[in-house]
Simulated scan of single mutants.
Amino acid sequence: MQFIETLSIRTKPRSMLDISSAVQDRLDAFEAGDGLLTAFIRHTSASLAIQENADPDVRADLLDAMDRLAPAGPLYRHSVEGPDDMPAHIKAVLMQTSMAIPVLRGRLALGTWQSLYVVEHRARPHTREVLLHFSGTRAAPPGKAVIAGRD
């Protein structure tokens, strides 16, 4: 079984937004069992990250570190969309635009302190699209096992 769906995510400026619950809701709706979920962000100035979900200082420190690596300003030739645009492209190259996450018994197999985040690199909010592709088994109905190759 497989499904493909696009999540529309409204971001805040320069932020990391936890989308784990929204992704899990989609897995639940499609009755996912065991398999692999690929998440892909369809933008060149935003990223995906799997990161700690307990201490918000981790996310703030990561955003600050990215700003030090690619500061905004008149340093770049590409500035059509403003002084934060080229730094956002650099940050997206340094981070990831796709993630492969195992799914076990219908649940994202993230660690205890991990969540999946959309990382907004721009200085203003955007609506971002995250394409989800699940490939795997369908969840077994209560009291019934799923046999490999059949559901």
Score class of each variant (00 low, 15 high):
Met16Asp: 06
Ala49Cys: 13
Ser8Met: 11
Ile50Ala: 11
Gly143Thr: 07
Pro125Thr: 13
Gly82Thr: 06
Ser21Phe: 12
Gly73Ile: 04
Pro71Ile: 00
Arg59Pro: 07
His133Thr: 12
Gln24Glu: 15
Asp28Lys: 13
Asp57Leu: 01
Lys144Cys: 13
Ala65Arg: 09
Leu69Cys: 01
Phe134Gln: 00
Met95Lys: 04
Gln51Tyr: 13
Met66Pro: 00
Ala92Met: 10
Ser21Ile: 10
Val93Ala: 14
Glu5Val: 10
Phe40Ile: 04
Ala92Phe: 06
Asp84Ser: 05
Val103Gly: 06
Arg77Val: 12
Met99Arg: 02
Gly111Pro: 09
Glu52Thr: 02
Leu104Gly: 07
Ala140Asp: 01
Phe40Thr: 06
Asp67Ser: 10
Ala46Arg: 01
Leu48Pro: 00
Met66Ile: 04
Val23Leu: 15
Arg77Lys: 14
Lys144Thr: 14
Gly33Cys: 00
Ala70Glu: 03
Gln2Pro: 14
Leu94His: 12
Asp28Phe: 08
Leu48Arg: 08
Leu7Gln: 07
Arg14Trp: 11
Asp28Trp: 08
Gln2Ile: 14
Val58Gly: 07
Arg107Phe: 14
Gly35Asn: 10
Pro74His: 12
Leu37Phe: 09
Tyr117Thr: 05
Ile101Gln: 03
Ala140Lys: 02
His121Ser: 01
Thr38Lys: 13
Asp64Ile: 04
Ile4Thr: 10
Asp18Trp: 01
Ala32Tyr: 03
Ala109Tyr: 14
Ile9Cys: 05
Phe40Gln: 00
Leu104Arg: 15
Thr112Cys: 09
Ala54His: 04
Asp57Trp: 07
Gly35Leu: 12
Leu36Ser: 04
Glu120Asn: 14
Arg77Asn: 12
Thr6Arg: 07
Thr112Ser: 15
Leu132Gln: 04
Ala140Ile: 01
Val103Ala: 11
Phe3Glu: 02
Glu120Met: 14
Leu27Asp: 09
Asp34Cys: 00
Leu116Lys: 04
Ala100Pro: 02
Arg138Glu: 14
Leu63Trp: 00
Leu7Glu: 05
Pro87Glu: 04
Ser21His: 12
Ile101Phe: 01
Pro125Phe: 14
Ala148Tyr: 02
Lys144Pro: 08
Ala22Val: 14
Gly73Trp: 00
Gln114Lys: 00
Asp55Leu: 03
Leu62Val: 11
Leu62Gln: 06
Asp57Ala: 03
Ala123Phe: 13
Met1Ser: 14
Ala100His: 08
Gly35Phe: 08
Ala72Trp: 05
Gly106Asn: 05
Arg10Thr: 12
Pro125Leu: 13
Asp85Arg: 03
Ile19Trp: 10
Leu69Ala: 03
Leu17Cys: 12
Ala100Arg: 09
Ala145Ile: 11
Thr6Ser: 08
Leu69Ser: 05
Lys91Arg: 14
Leu36Val: 10
